[in-house]
Design a protein around this nucleic acid. Structure first.
Lengths: 226, 226
DNA sequence: GCAAAAGTGTTCAATGTACACCCATGC
DNA sequence: GCATGGGTGTACATTGAACACTTTTGC
């Protein structure tokens, strides 16, 4: 690589959602070199006036028009050669959003870029070292899910226990026992029952639940495969 | 703050050891402004030719003359005002070293700096946002200790079970039951027994143990308070 | 009345926790 | 012989895992 005077600092945000019965991630298709036409995790330069979290939030908002979502710093990648012809250090983030909140932004600028969702278990070829970032993001997401009530961030405000279980199964890529799942999740005191039921389905209506905001932090582990 | 063209990127490494029956951290006393005379976590700028881990290793080696120690990236701090008059983003690391390996380096340069160990539960006033970094480092260290066989990194190659337990207790800041501790730790298959015993003590000799390198990764949780 | 998803309990195994006494040594 | 830290086992409680049938609805 060419030696130069400064580092560039970017944030890259891995944005997950549950969509079409899949765990999906938002990617942008690059409109120019390097890695033209390859897919990349949305990111951008950190402005001098903003902190890292703010930069990640800004990128997220620019791409999806959502604010106030779950956002967590993941890891900082800084191999000298990770970016061709410049020293770019990237601070990666993980974000979780509810798919019904989303309104995807068209990418401004000269080259019209594709921006779209991809199932995490069936990814296209990615630019830079983004496959490493994404792999690590999935690992972190799984670890978080087993410790903290984070799945709610991926679901609508009101959801059924079956939908919640499905979310766990999609993220953990495993099957879970229905009775054990319900026993465990209800014993945590993080759910509130609504006196409402699903209607649309042509089957037995399911009770709707929500996340109990009071019950903050520090819970014990969840789930194991069945 | 003054707007400027680039970010600076540093690494700061929180170096822990067990010393004098304490969990201690290595700090340098600053010889100049800003924060003259305040204590700081050892750090340095990331060179353009090295990756982040290499930068952290270099800093560690410069201060302590040790190599090949446990080193893990912690978190990246990037508040615009965290550093006066410049935008400095720091990638923090945690390192664990065996106190008997250490040979503290005198700091080169114009101002002679103090470099010394401090008990983590009795710290001096720190420069910048270093108290935040250190607080987070302790949190991470505790979490790691409960999941992975990391305590060995803080002990001599050969150690007694009492020393190992003491290490857990110092890091977790809690008391542990001797029998339960021994039952648990020996059941993990990560220890090897030596046919050697302590001699120096004026009490009953204790068997020495070592870390079994074969038993790699992915173990279950450890310990809880008694 | 039947197809389809919702809902519900018990048994067993594994793990965690509490707890007290004898042992080997140096002095 | 005594002071000091080393070393050991059992009973109970909690948690996790396996497993199958009844209920409610729309058609």
């Amino acid at each position: 690589m060419i030696e130069q005077k400064t580092h560039e600092v970017t944030v890259d945000t891995v944005i997950f959602t549950i969509r079409k019965n899949n765990l999906e991630v938002l990617l942008v298709q690059r409109g120019h070199e390097p890695f033209k036409d390859k897919w990349a995790i949305p990111g951008g330069f950190v402005r001098l006036s903003e902190n890292l979290d703010e930069a990640a939030k800004r990128v997220l908002y620019e791409k999806t028009n959502v604010k106030d979502v779950y956002l967590e710093q993941l890891y900082t990648f800084g191999e000298p050669e990770r970016y061709p012809s410049a020293r770019v250090i990237t601070v990666s983030y993980v974000a979780l959003i509810r798919s019904d909140d989303i309104e995807l932004a068209a990418e401004e600028g000269l080259n019209i870029q594709q921006i779209s969702w991809h199932p995490v278990y069936k990814l296209p070829e990615l630019a830079f070292d983004h496959i490493d970032i994404l792999t690590y993001a999935i690992k972190r997401l799984r670890a978080r899910l087993e410790y903290t009530p984070i799945a709610f961030q991926l679901l609508p405000i009101k959801f059924t226990l079956t939908e919640l279980q499905r979310t766990y199964e999609l993220v953990l890529a495993t099957g879970l026992d229905k009775r054990n799942f319900r026993k465990k999740i209800t014993s945590l005191g993080i759910l509130k029952e609504y006196e409402e039921f699903t209607k649309e389905s042509s089957k037995r209506p399911a009770r709707l639940y929500g996340f109990n905001e009071d019950s903050i932090e520090g819970r014990k582990g969840l789930m194991s495969a069945s």
